[in-house]
Simulated scan of single mutants.
Amino acid sequence: MKILLTGINGQVGAAIAQALADSTLQHTLIALDRQALDLSDAAAIARSVQQHQPDIIINPAAYTAVDQAEHERELAFAINAQAPKVLAEQARLLGIPLLHFSTDYVFDGSKNGAWLEHDPTGPLNVYGASKLEGERAIQDSGCQHLILRTSWVYSRRGKNFYLTMRRLLSERDRVSVVADQHGTPTPAGWLAAVTLQLLQQWQQGQWHNGIYHCTPSGVTSWFGFAQAIAAQLVCEGQLQAALSPIPSSAYPTPAARPANSQLDCGALARDWQISLPSWEQALSEHL
């Protein structure tokens, strides 16, 4: 099995590459970073896929600077919408599947309860709009595809809430964190483990086209997530700061965020037999 993997310097891409290296799955990995493949260059994407002739494409790469996207709309759409479209078109031409990662930010956050795959979308910011257009382009391409929407991704690399909180909580006397936005923290390592399970099922001839929500179970706020991180630091003897909850209005950002990002992942568990640990258990296991 020849796997073409994009975004290997990102949180999810790096985790998938490591999981594949540690696995017994028989494969050849074509791991492409930003230097090897410019995802803002549609022609380069098509050439790369045709050159490597993979058996499957995995695309966790994305423009993820949510606030910066408000000022770089063209670049965000090139990477998050146009690039998936080209990858999907190439996948269709080769008759291979595309596994693509998307986001909770395709929703407006107004629903009471967890979002289902078929719920109406309504992104509040450029990042979410660009990711939604990428989803639609993949669906319209006619290729065999699996789109995984996830949320609040973190790991021990890159820029993410987990690392930021660890640093601030160990350096400052007090840290204020938004408490009225809710979702499910998702470790990149857990997403990588899920990806391996999906690949194994695909090898066995099992595949379900479409969009699936993919996070651990449960829900918390950014403040609740920060409390869990603070508890880790207590055990490590590194906690310095006291935590204070604040409303979103007290921490304005260029891009609006959905108040409710919780995703219902029941379909993933049912169709793909993926177990869904609590987000607290996932935090403990994957870090």
Rank of each mutant, 00 (worst) to 15 (best):
L98R: 06
G109K: 02
Q68G: 15
A228Q: 10
R174H: 10
I79L: 08
K131H: 08
G183D: 01
S151T: 12
D119A: 07
P258M: 13
R172W: 09
G128E: 13
A83F: 08
V234Q: 15
A259L: 06
V234C: 04
K2V: 01
D264W: 12
Q238M: 13
K111V: 11
A256N: 10
L239H: 03
A43K: 14
L39Y: 08
A88M: 04
K85D: 13
A226Q: 00
F77Q: 06
I16M: 00
Q35H: 14
L98M: 02
T64E: 00
R257E: 03
L268E: 07
L99Y: 05
L32W: 10
S278N: 01
S48M: 14
L124K: 06
S102Y: 04
L239T: 01
Q50E: 14
L75K: 05
I96Q: 09
Y212N: 09
G109T: 07
Q273T: 12
I147T: 13
Q68Y: 12
A62C: 08
V86S: 02
P120G: 12
P258I: 12
F107N: 06
G142A: 08
P120R: 14
R47Y: 03
T220M: 10
L132G: 07
L168R: 15
S170K: 08
L25D: 04
H182Y: 12
K85L: 13
R257Y: 07
A192C: 02
H213K: 02
A88L: 04
L93P: 00
A62R: 07
S261M: 15
I274A: 04
A192S: 00
A255G: 03
L283T: 02
T220H: 06
Q240H: 15
G205A: 00
A36Y: 05
E236P: 04
S23T: 03
V12T: 07
Q201F: 00
Q203N: 05
E285K: 13
R34I: 11
E135H: 06
H286N: 09
G113W: 09
G266K: 03
Q181E: 14
Q273G: 09
N160Y: 01
I229R: 04
A42Q: 14
Y127V: 10
N112H: 14
L263F: 10
H213Q: 07
A65Y: 13
R157G: 06
N9Q: 10
L199T: 07
F223A: 07
Q181C: 08
A228D: 08
S244K: 10
P247S: 13
E89V: 05
N125Q: 02
T195C: 01
E133Y: 08
D104H: 10
I30S: 12
E280L: 11
A44W: 04
P123V: 10
A267Y: 08
A259D: 09
K159P: 02
D41L: 03
D22E: 14
D38L: 07
L75V: 03
L196K: 00
L4C: 03
A267M: 10
Y127Q: 11
I211V: 15
L268K: 08
E171V: 07
S284Y: 14
G210T: 01
L5P: 05
F225K: 01
F107V: 04
V234A: 09
I58R: 03
L263G: 13
Q227E: 13
S244L: 08
A44R: 04
Y105G: 02
D271N: 12
L20K: 00
Q227K: 10
I16Y: 04
R92G: 02
L163R: 15
Q200W: 06
L239E: 02
V106E: 12
W272K: 11
W272S: 07
Q51W: 04
